[in-house]
Nucleic acid binder design. Structure first.
Lengths: 214, 214
DNA sequence: CTGGAATGTTCATGCGGTTAACTTCGGGCA
DNA sequence: TGCCCGAAGTTAACCGCATGAACATTCCAG
């Protein structure tokens, strides 16, 4: 996330992007509250008001960072799933994928607390129902989509209550999201890596057992 | 939470409390970010800097609000548990208590989103391990303590893995906490009351099934 | 009484968001 | 080719907030 450098011209040439990079850096360092318009401008070497040529204000800058952070989160989940062995065994594949995605989610939160918090700062787009709208869905909540699809695949094997599916996905999301926040920001933030692992695994067990029930 | 009124004397008489009430009102209305020193002082009818005679600064005021909010949260949980019928049947009592506490938790979050968010704003005291330290524990994280004890009672019946107990409590907490945030602040905030109920129940089912496993 | 400790007040500083008015550049059109 | 306009930056200024310093008013203990 190094700012794109340009000559010392009056016109920057790529200010919008440079500001986004600076803002992402800020969020990475200290979370959404540290995303400050003036500071981003300072880092890029431009006057504070220049940012207004490219963003509606701090709010839009922050929303842009949020989008970036959500993409990173989803990417981390997919990386974790891809890294997962055992995708060959079709019997276990579904469950392994779910747990891998969840580990990727929590792992991202723990390793990038600032970005993770930024991913859920200002209220973004909301869903009307946690249902399995497959086709497009907003790319915004990609993390949820990944999780939901994996859970459907898992439930598809067993015989789960039909109406319970989307709610189950929401429950799983709740678990990993809540766990992440407790670990990053909350009362569990001081857990040793080992204990943290134990809690993560317990949560995953809960999610999987819940998927079987739901 | 009405401010304690006093005559128009130079000395307020109970400024600290009045400021706390005003700050709690602010948090109730708009969450922790709306807890602004100057506004609280304004509402109490006092100059902004007067607050510094009673608080170290905005931070301490906010921390005081947080403590208040956490107490309210725990109280709401206990009310919900007390309201729960079926405490007579010892076989179901434990499970019912767990679900009632969780419903109380989420219910408080949904009904008092501002206060709920304030309860987890600035990082408060953290636990070293999510273990069943029975005796005192910090009264801060009372909500967690309530949940943990109820889960222990539940697990005490079945034969759960001994080491898994505290981690199970953390997992359950993660679920209700995450669900609350998604409903209050996050992508699930637009769910109708009915759908919300479905998601809550699915999450509770997951928590209970997880307690059986853990 | 009276003097100091509490408790409030007024000023002043610095930061961050945002708007208004002015400046510089780059590129398309006469 | 040269000029002019609009995009992209700049400076100046306003407002609200947190906070510190110095001053004012009360209250109460001795």
């Amino acid at each position: 996330m190094a700012a794109t450098s340009a000559g010392k011209t009056y016109h920057h040439g790529d200010l919008r992007n440079a500001l986004i990079c600076a803002a992402v850096d800020l969020a990475t360092e200290g979370g959404p509250e540290r995303v400050v318009l003036r500071e981003a401008a300072r880092r890029v070497g431009v006057s504070p008001t220049a940012a207004y040529r490219h963003f509606d204000g701090r709010g839009e800058l922050l929303r842009t960072v949020r989008t970036h952070a959500r993409r990173e989160l989803a990417a981390a989940m997919e990386r974790a799933a891809a890294r997962e062995p055992g995708a060959d065994d079709p019997g276990l594949a579904a469950e392994r994928r779910v747990t891998a995605l969840c580990r990727g989610y929590v792992g991202f939160a723990v390793e990038q607390p600032g970005l993770y918090r930024a991913a859920f700062c200002v209220p973004g787009p909301a869903v009307d129902e946690p249902l399995p709208v497959r086709p497009p869905a907003e790319p915004e909540i990609l993390a949820f989509t990944l999780l939901r699809e994996a859970l459907e695949a898992l439930a598809g094997q067993g015989a789960a209550r039909p109406g319970g599916r989307p709610a189950t996905a929401a429950a799983a999301w709740s678990a990993v999201h809540g766990l992440s926040l407790l670990l990053v920001d909350g009362p569990l933030r001081r857990l040793s890596a080992q204990r943290r692992g134990v809690v993560v695994e317990a949560t995953l067990a809960m999610v999987v057992s819940g998927a079987a029930v739901g």
